[in-house]
Simulated assay, not measured.
Amino acid sequence: MIPGPATLYPDAVTTTHRSQSGARMSLSQTQPDNSTRASMVLVTGGALWGLYWIPVRFFYDQGLTGPWSGIAMYCAALIALIPFVWPDRRMLARQWRDLMLSGMFTGAAFSLYSISLVYTDVVRSILLFYLTPIWGTILGVVFLKERLSVMRLMGLICGLGGLFVVLGGAGFVPWPQNLGDWLALASGICWALGTLGLYKAGSMTISGQVFAFVIGALLLSLVSLLMLGGQTLPNITSEESIRIAGYALLSAFYVLPMIYMTIWPATKLSPAKVGLLLMSEVVVGIASAAALSGEPFGLREFLGATLIVSAAVLEILRK
């Protein structure tokens, strides 16, 4: 048998193999790992959520009042999703229970948040949604028998303090002042409940989870048409309908990447890190609302935002 290169020059081959392995290790060390990449994607996704009020208000100005702006965007997003979820249709049919659990609550949070942006100030919608540490603490203590530690108690106090400041009017009474406030509060509660469904549906594909998310948002928006009085079909012409449909299809290029950039990182990062990085929505949302919408942002809003963000940070540090 003719000896091969490994037999003739064993030291040279070993040296070459080691050098190639070292080069591969050096190259892999210079590339960002999944955690770093997922963190960057999540911060970007949170920033997009902070600007989500802009397309919602745009469709409202086009004549789509109440839930109709969300319905238009969700329908367009579903159409754009079909090519991505079609290969997984059998798996989605088998996991329909987890699909319903995750989609109904997270989609409801998405829908209620969208509607609240029409009925109240952008800053109030964002801050009231991010009271989720309060609801997470209550759910954990009541249903999961978690211990109310000092850290959780501090987070609860900060969250309630932020609620007190944000909702405090002339009489400084922490009570929702309009329908949008109530919807924003409800959206945060639904999101806290929906995270359990997302956790249980961890084996589902990312496209399947996005599909459940959008389906839940669309169904809740359709139900809200019955719950909210005076939400008839928009009074728009056929020409305006065609133009709005075109805008809705364009919005899918914004809505779907935003949802993907929220759900995919959540499969790579710990819940604590996800909660911290999503705070980019608060920063971008408040800054853009103050700069573009002309809504007031004074000392009371700043103090409320600081307390609510502190509640989220304390919850993250606890975990």
Score class of each variant (00 low, 15 high):
L92A: 03
I263L: 13
I157F: 10
S187W: 02
G216C: 06
A6M: 14
R24N: 11
G197L: 01
I71C: 00
A311G: 07
A291L: 15
Y113I: 07
A108Y: 02
L249S: 07
L256C: 05
W135P: 06
L167G: 05
E240D: 14
M279L: 15
P265H: 02
E240K: 14
S111W: 07
I242S: 06
S207E: 13
V43A: 09
I308K: 03
L278I: 09
S21P: 08
M1T: 12
T262N: 15
G229V: 05
I71P: 01
Q20S: 12
L228D: 02
D61H: 13
P10D: 00
P83W: 02
I71L: 07
S241Y: 06
V13Y: 08
M261R: 00
Q62C: 14
G103N: 02
G45V: 02
S39Y: 10
V150H: 12
I242C: 04
P174F: 00
T306H: 08
S187E: 00
V142K: 04
M204H: 05
F297T: 07
M100P: 05
V210S: 05
G45M: 03
L193K: 03
S203V: 13
C75I: 14
F143M: 07
V284T: 11
A23Q: 14
Y52N: 07
D181P: 00
S288I: 00
V13L: 14
L250G: 11
A109N: 02
M227H: 06
T36R: 10
C190K: 02
P87C: 04
R124M: 12
M100V: 15
A72Q: 00
A252G: 06
W182H: 06
A77H: 07
I308V: 11
K268I: 08
S114Y: 09
S111H: 08
W135Q: 03
E146G: 10
G229S: 12
F84V: 07
S35Y: 01
L299T: 15
A80Q: 01
A186Y: 07
Q209S: 09
A212P: 03
Y199I: 04
A23C: 13
A248H: 01
A291D: 09
S224L: 10
A108G: 15
S19R: 15
L101T: 11
L139I: 14
W175V: 15
R57S: 10
L193F: 11
F211V: 04
G103T: 05
P3W: 08
I71G: 01
Y9A: 12
R147L: 14
V43G: 00
V85L: 03
P83A: 00
A170V: 15
A201P: 05
W96T: 07
N34G: 13
I2V: 13
A12I: 12
M258P: 10
W68L: 02
F172D: 05
K145P: 12
L139S: 11
G197H: 01
D61C: 04
G168Y: 03
T237C: 10
E146S: 08
